[in-house]
Deep mutational scan, measured.
Amino acid sequence: PVYLSVKADNSMFIGNDPVTDETMITALNALTEGKKDTTIFFRADKTVDYETLMKVMDTLHQAGYLKIGLVG
């Protein structure tokens, strides 16, 4: 499974590897070998604001990742 996490300080990680807004999709493409039907499990600290969550989800959708599971 692929886990994308947003921490309380808005830092992002794919698994244990830090990513930025600019590198997130490139890292996901490498990890999933470009398979856009891969489910991305998205988790965020409860203090992360809604705007940040939606920005990340919008970026995922624009890149073609449509299977996003929200996890606690």
Score class of each variant (00 low, 15 high):
residue 1 P to Y: 14
residue 1 P to S: 10
residue 1 P to V: 14
residue 2 V to E: 01
residue 2 V to Y: 04
residue 2 V to S: 01
residue 2 V to F: 04
residue 2 V to P: 03
residue 3 Y to E: 06
residue 3 Y to H: 08
residue 3 Y to M: 09
residue 4 L to G: 01
residue 4 L to S: 00
residue 4 L to I: 15
residue 4 L to N: 00
residue 4 L to R: 00
residue 4 L to M: 07
residue 5 S to G: 03
residue 5 S to N: 10
residue 5 S to A: 07
residue 5 S to I: 15
residue 5 S to M: 12
residue 5 S to T: 15
residue 5 S to Q: 11
residue 6 V to A: 02
residue 6 V to P: 01
residue 7 K to S: 08
residue 7 K to P: 02
residue 7 K to R: 11
residue 7 K to G: 09
residue 7 K to A: 09
residue 8 A to C: 09
residue 8 A to F: 09
residue 9 D to C: 06
residue 9 D to G: 09
residue 9 D to K: 08
residue 9 D to A: 08
residue 10 N to K: 14
residue 11 S to F: 07
residue 12 M to Q: 02
residue 12 M to N: 01
residue 12 M to K: 05
residue 12 M to S: 01
residue 12 M to R: 03
residue 13 F to A: 04
residue 13 F to Q: 05
residue 13 F to G: 01
residue 13 F to W: 15
residue 14 I to Y: 02
residue 14 I to K: 01
residue 14 I to E: 00
residue 14 I to N: 01
residue 15 G to H: 04
residue 15 G to W: 04
residue 15 G to M: 08
residue 15 G to C: 11
residue 16 N to G: 09
residue 16 N to L: 09
residue 16 N to I: 08
residue 16 N to Y: 07
residue 16 N to H: 11
residue 16 N to E: 12
residue 17 D to V: 15
residue 18 P to F: 09
residue 19 V to F: 03
residue 19 V to D: 01
residue 19 V to Q: 03
residue 19 V to W: 02
residue 20 T to E: 05
residue 20 T to I: 03
residue 20 T to N: 09
residue 21 D to S: 14
residue 21 D to V: 15
residue 22 E to P: 02
residue 22 E to N: 07
residue 24 M to A: 02
residue 24 M to S: 01
residue 25 I to Y: 02
residue 25 I to R: 02
residue 25 I to G: 02
residue 25 I to K: 02
residue 25 I to F: 03
residue 25 I to H: 02
residue 25 I to Q: 02
residue 25 I to M: 07
residue 26 T to F: 11
residue 26 T to L: 12
residue 26 T to C: 08
residue 26 T to A: 14
residue 27 A to R: 13
residue 27 A to M: 15
residue 27 A to V: 15
residue 28 L to E: 00
residue 28 L to D: 00
residue 28 L to A: 01
residue 29 N to F: 08
residue 29 N to E: 13
residue 29 N to L: 09
residue 29 N to T: 08
residue 30 A to V: 10
residue 30 A to P: 01
residue 30 A to Q: 11
residue 30 A to M: 11
residue 30 A to I: 13
residue 30 A to F: 09
residue 30 A to Y: 10
residue 31 L to Y: 09
residue 31 L to H: 08
residue 31 L to I: 10
residue 32 T to K: 02
residue 32 T to F: 06
residue 33 E to S: 12
residue 33 E to Y: 10
residue 34 G to P: 02
residue 34 G to Q: 05
residue 34 G to L: 05
residue 34 G to T: 04
residue 34 G to E: 05
residue 35 K to D: 13
residue 35 K to F: 07
residue 35 K to T: 05
residue 36 K to F: 08
residue 36 K to Q: 06
residue 37 D to H: 07
residue 37 D to R: 04
residue 37 D to F: 06
residue 37 D to Q: 07
residue 38 T to V: 14
residue 39 T to P: 14
residue 39 T to I: 15
residue 40 I to A: 00
residue 41 F to C: 13
residue 41 F to V: 11
residue 41 F to S: 03
residue 41 F to A: 03
residue 41 F to N: 05
residue 42 F to Q: 00
residue 42 F to A: 03
residue 42 F to H: 00
residue 43 R to P: 00
residue 43 R to M: 14
residue 43 R to L: 14
residue 44 A to H: 14
residue 44 A to K: 04
residue 44 A to S: 08
residue 45 D to G: 05
residue 45 D to Q: 04
residue 45 D to Y: 05
residue 45 D to R: 02
residue 46 K to Y: 10
residue 46 K to V: 10
residue 46 K to E: 13
residue 46 K to Q: 11
residue 47 T to K: 11
residue 47 T to W: 11
residue 47 T to Q: 13
residue 47 T to D: 15
residue 47 T to E: 15
residue 48 V to F: 04
residue 48 V to Y: 03
residue 48 V to A: 08
residue 49 D to T: 14
residue 49 D to I: 08
residue 49 D to Y: 05
residue 50 Y to R: 12
residue 50 Y to C: 15
residue 50 Y to E: 10
residue 50 Y to S: 09
residue 50 Y to L: 12
residue 51 E to W: 12
residue 51 E to I: 11
residue 51 E to N: 12
residue 51 E to S: 13
residue 51 E to R: 12
residue 52 T to G: 03
residue 52 T to Y: 14
residue 52 T to S: 06
residue 52 T to D: 05
residue 53 L to M: 08
residue 53 L to A: 04
residue 54 M to A: 10
residue 55 K to L: 08
residue 55 K to A: 08
residue 55 K to I: 06
residue 55 K to S: 07
residue 55 K to Q: 07
residue 56 V to H: 04
residue 56 V to A: 04
residue 56 V to T: 05
residue 57 M to Y: 08
residue 57 M to A: 05
residue 57 M to K: 06
residue 57 M to N: 02
residue 58 D to P: 01
residue 58 D to E: 13
residue 59 T to A: 13
residue 59 T to N: 11
residue 59 T to V: 13
residue 59 T to P: 01
residue 61 H to K: 14
residue 61 H to I: 13
residue 62 Q to W: 06
residue 62 Q to C: 07
residue 62 Q to R: 14
residue 62 Q to K: 14
residue 63 A to E: 07
residue 63 A to F: 06
residue 63 A to G: 07
residue 63 A to D: 04
residue 65 Y to N: 00
residue 65 Y to V: 01
residue 65 Y to S: 00
residue 65 Y to P: 00
residue 66 L to R: 10
residue 66 L to F: 15
residue 66 L to I: 11
residue 66 L to G: 06
residue 67 K to H: 12
residue 67 K to C: 11
residue 68 I to N: 02
residue 68 I to F: 05
residue 68 I to E: 01
residue 70 L to M: 12
residue 71 V to W: 07
residue 72 G to K: 10
residue 72 G to A: 11
residue 72 G to Q: 12
